[in-house]
C-alpha cells in the first residue's frame, strides 16, 4: 500500500511499487492534465510538483512518493500559476497543447524561485520541456509577461 496526497487529497493505492507516478495519476486517478511524451525524462510533459518542487513523474516510481504531497496542474493554486496561465492565454501560447501542462508547471516553478527571470534563467529552467510545435518564442514572452504581473 502506498499512501500520499494528490492535490490535497489522501490517496492509498495497492499497486506495483515500480509503477511510475505518471501512470498512477493518469490511469488510476484520471488526472489527465499530466502528459506522457517520452517516458525517459527528456521532454517534461509529465511535470508535477513533488513536495513543492518540479518533478518528472515518468521516472518517479510510486514507491518513492510514499508520504509525499503531489500537485498536478489540476490542483495548482497561487499567484504564480495564475499569472502564468493568464499570460499564456493572453498571447495564445499553445498550438497542439500536448506539452503545455508541463510548460506551465515548469514556468510556475521558475517564477516561484526567481520572480523576475532573465532570458538565461528561462533557458535554464525550461530547457527540459520540449515543445514539438516550437512555441518557444511565446513561452519566453509569456513568462516575462507573467513576471511583470507578479511585480504588481
Amino acid at each position: 500500500m502506498t499512501s500520499f496526497t494528490v492535490n490535497g487529497r489522501d490517496v492509498d493505492l495497492d499497486i506495483d511499487p515500480d509503477t511510475p507516478l505518471l501512470w498512477v495519476l493518469r490511469d488510476e486517478l484520471r488526472l489527465t492534465g499530466t502528459k506522457f511524451g517520452c517516458g525517459v525524462a527528456q521532454c517534461g510533459a509529465c511535470t508535477v510538483m513533488l513536495d513543492g518542487m518540479p518533478r518528472r513523474s515518468c521516472v518517479t516510481p510510486i514507491s518513492m512518493v510514499e508520504g509525499s504531497e503531489v500537485t498536478t496542474i489540476e490542483g495548482m493554486e497561487g499567484p504564480e500559476i495564475t499569472a502564468v496561465q493568464t499570460a499564456w492565454e493572453a498571447i495564445d501560447v499553445p498550438q497542439c497543447g500536448w506539452c503545455q501542462s508541463g510548460q506551465v508547471m515548469s514556468a510556475t516553478a521558475l517564477l516561484q524561485q526567481i520572480p523576475s527571470p532573465t532570458d538565461e534563467d528561462i533557458n535554464n529552467a525550461m530547457a527540459g520541456n520540449v515543445c514539438r510545435c516550437a512555441t518557444y518564442v511565446r513561452i519566453r514572452q509569456a513568462i516575462h509577461d507573467a513576471a511583470k504581473t507578479l511585480e504588481g
Binding site: K35, I73, Q85, W88, E89, G97
Partner: peptide, 19 residues
C-alpha cells in the same frame, strides 16, 4: 480573435486520445 482551444490547453483540461 483568441484561439478557442487555448484555455483548455493551458489548464490541462483539454481531452486528447490518451485522456
Amino acid at each position: 480573435v483568441p484561439k478557442l482551444d487555448t484555455v483548455a490547453k493551458t489548464t490541462g483540461k483539454a481531452v486528447f486520445t490518451l485522456d
